[in-house]
Design a protein around this nucleic acid. Structure first.
Length: 480
RNA sequence: GUCCCCAUCGUCUAGUCCGGUCCAGGACACCGCCCUUUCACGGCGGUAACACGAGUUCAAAUCUCGUUGGGGACGCCA
């Protein structure tokens, strides 16, 4: 099984699961599932200072939430140090790498000097030119040393599934460090060693890694190893065409979860951002995505992350969702807003299902259920100022509301049809448009001017509550 | 400063490999109409793009070159 598809997602635990990383995870996962391959999770935590174990659990949680199950791992680079040492040793023995005794301070100074003169800096190979005597002397003094790869002359090229043939002159590259003076590997080296050891068949990652890939190809060559296939995917950008960052809105996948987006929407949306199935489909099930996904269909230009389209898609999914399942997803949001108690969640399930049905066509996110329908859960709602001046514009309105309250108090069966009958009849008697009364009642009982059909709302509120609310409004109008 | 990549409606894209079927198709957003007590949903319709300039060709969104614009990378970060 040498041609088994094995892909990986390799987040670094220096932050939450970024949407960009999540998109890469989605593409890798879809590619693995499409080809009946393996999806491997590897945590790139060689930078101890910037790695946080707590972040690891958030990343795992985020991947699970998205439903991107992995077949192997998580592997931790911090626990694989012997591999990196072993491979570095091989390169050293074959003279493909050499020790560098330069201090980071010296290198930084040289780099800055070069920048000041506006010249391109590559490592000047100071330590490659060291004589045996000089080396012995440095060794005797126990000078810290890093390991650098030796970049040969020539050019390096590789075939990218998305970008086709990519090449670069080796002189543009420098002898980069592969092992730090404390023996920890650098990113490019650890990445190659692990991809090799894990028998990764396809490296699918962001196009910001193209420059790294040249270095990695050189590493594979130096090791005499066979290379995986590469596919660099375009990067999602924020609306201003810059990289998505915290300042520009939600970056962590958990932020989207907390804002009320469905995991299947995130997967669907992330999948079709930068990739298209080539037909007119956009909303696709997980199975359809797996079935149609291919790296050949990935575009080369960086797509902008379109929040409005994400919201639209979330709304589409919500509308298509089964009410029972939807309710279970919404309940946590109701808790968070303190709209219901555990007890109510159990006992008022039927009522909550009706409420869900009413707001289903109006919500773009799960969170909106808790926001738009808030007035159903609390008596402590405010009247929209604009609607007040438009609808509660005379004392007459208070009289009409009182009359309506009287009418409904005599209703035995507080069902929407009956309520509607009562209201229309009253409007006729008062010689006003039913709409006029409807708007007044809506504002009185909900505090807002729009929303689901009024009679459904009233039925849901119940007779006593509606009457109480009308009284509240009447008092409000009278004291204006 | 050096290098790499990209370029179709405001946004995501189809078409580009294998030039003619494209006075460029779909979706989001926007606008209008219908439905309607409202807000939505839904239905119908509309505005809107081949970055620019050369070249090749009977014919170019599609091929070539240049310009411009955008993105990315240049660490003992990942």
């Amino acid at each position: 099984m040498n041609n088994e598809v094995r892909v990986r997602i390799a987040p670094s635990p220096s932050g939450y699961l970024h949407v960009g990383t999540a998109r890469m995870a989605v593409c890798n996962w879809l590619f693995a599932r499409h080809n009946q391959g393996k999806f491997i999770l590897r945590i790139e935590d060689t930078d101890i200072a910037r790695s946080d174990p707590q972040m690891v659990s958030i990343i795992l949680e985020s991947l699970k939430w998205l439903g991107l199950d992995w077949d192997e791992g998580p592997y931790y680079q911090s626990q694989r140090m012997e591999f990196y040492k072993k491979y570095a040793q091989i390169l050293l023995e074959r003279n493909k790498a050499y020790y560098c005794y330069c201090t980071p301070e010296t290198l930084k100074r040289k780099r800055e000097e070069a920048a000041a003169k506006k010249i391109n800096w590559v490592y000047d190979r100071t330590c490659l030119k060291l004589s045996e005597q000089e080396k012995a002397e440095l060794e005797r003094k126990n000078t810290p040393k890093a390991v650098r790869i030796f970049i040969p002359e020539g050019k390096t090229s590789f075939y990218d599934i998305v970008y086709k043939e990519l090449k670069k002159e080796n002189k543009e590259l420098d002898d980069f460090v592969i092992l730090r003076s404390d023996f920890r590997p650098t990113y490019n080296f650890a990445c190659v060693v692990d991809d090799l050891e894990m028998r990764i068949s396809h490296v699918i990652r962001g196009n910001d890694h193209i420059a790294n890939t040249f270095k990695q190809v050189l590493l594979y060559r130096a090791l005499g190893a066979e290379m995986p296939s590469f596919a660099h995917l375009p990067l999602n950008l924020a609306m201003d065409r810059q990289k998505i960052s915290k300042r520009k809105g939600a970056v962590a996948i958990t932020d989207y979860r907390d804002a009320g987006f469905l995991p299947e929407v995130m997967v669907n949306f992330l999948a079709i951002s930068g990739w298209s199935p080539k037909d007119e489909r956009e909303i696709m099930t997980r199975e359809e995505l797996i079935q149609s996904f291919s790296l050949e269909g990935v575009s080369q230009a960086n797509p902008i992350f379109d929040m409005q389209k994400l919201e639209w898609m979330n709304g589409e999914y919500i509308r298509a969702y089964d009410n029972e399942k939807l309710l279970d997803l919404i309940i946590p949001f109701l808790f968070k807003e303190n709209l219901i108690t555990e007890d109510m969640a159990k006992k008022k399930r039927e009522w909550l299902l009706k409420y869900i049905q009413l707001f289903k066509e109006r919500a773009k996110t799960l969170k909106e259920f808790a926001e738009k329908g808030k007035y159903l859960f609390t008596f402590d709602y405010q009247y929209e100022p604009k609607a007040v001046s438009k609808t509660f514009n005379s004392i007459e309105v208070a009289d009409r509301l009182n009359k309506f309250a009287e009418r409904i108090s005599s209703l035995d069966d507080f069902k929407k049809e009956k309520i509607e009958d009562a209201l229309r009849k009253l409007a006729e008697e008062l010689k006003i448009e039913p709409a006029q009364l409807i708007h007044a009642v809506r504002l009185a009982t909900t505090g807002v001017s729009g929303g689901p059909p009024l009679f459904d709302i009233l039925e849901l509120l119940g007779k006593e509550e509606v009457i109480k609310r009308i009284q509240k409004a009447v008092e409000f109008i009278q004291t204006r």
